[in-house]
Computed example of a mutant assay.
Amino acid sequence: MLKTRITELFQVRHPVVQGGMRGIALAELTAAVANAGCLGFLSTHTHIEPESLRREIARTRTLTQGVFGVNLTVLPNIKPDYEGFLPRHRRDGRAGYGNGRQQPGEVYRAVR
């Protein structure tokens, strides 16, 4: 088995990361990636409200015991309820954060 910093840090079998792609990084894809021994990410950007993301996280958990994360993309022209999403990430304990070419400022400071 190949050991890398990614496999050791995230406890996955393969150093492959599936990004949180808007519109496609849903429970089925993310769980399939996790079930294959890789690190999958759900897309926060696909969900308009935090409750929708909470349901998608729960659905993903029913499909896999593997490791997965949640990608929070900060875009300059879209202003979702970032503060509503952040506490959900923390409670669920699986969080990945991405940046869509904008300085995330206060959003990332809230994550620390």
Rank of each mutant, 00 (worst) to 15 (best):
T44Y: 02
R22F: 15
A32D: 12
E56M: 12
I57R: 02
T62K: 06
V12F: 08
R54I: 04
I24V: 15
L29T: 11
V107R: 01
S43W: 11
P104F: 07
R59Y: 13
A95H: 09
T60N: 08
A27Y: 09
E28V: 07
G84H: 07
E56F: 14
H45G: 14
L53S: 08
T62N: 08
V107M: 03
E8D: 05
A34I: 11
A110G: 01
F41A: 07
D81W: 05
E56P: 06
G100H: 02
Q11M: 03
L29H: 02
Q11Y: 09
G66S: 03
K79G: 12
N35Q: 03
I78M: 05
T44R: 05
A25V: 06
G23Q: 14
I57N: 06
I78R: 08
L29D: 11
V12H: 09
R94N: 13
D92Y: 13
G98P: 05
F68A: 09
R91S: 13
F10E: 08
A25W: 04
R22A: 15
G105L: 06
H47S: 12
V67A: 12
L9A: 08
L26C: 08
V74E: 10
I57E: 09
R59D: 15
I48R: 14
I57W: 13
N35K: 00
G100Q: 06
A32Q: 07
R88K: 02
R91K: 12
I24F: 11
D81A: 05
T44W: 04
R90S: 06
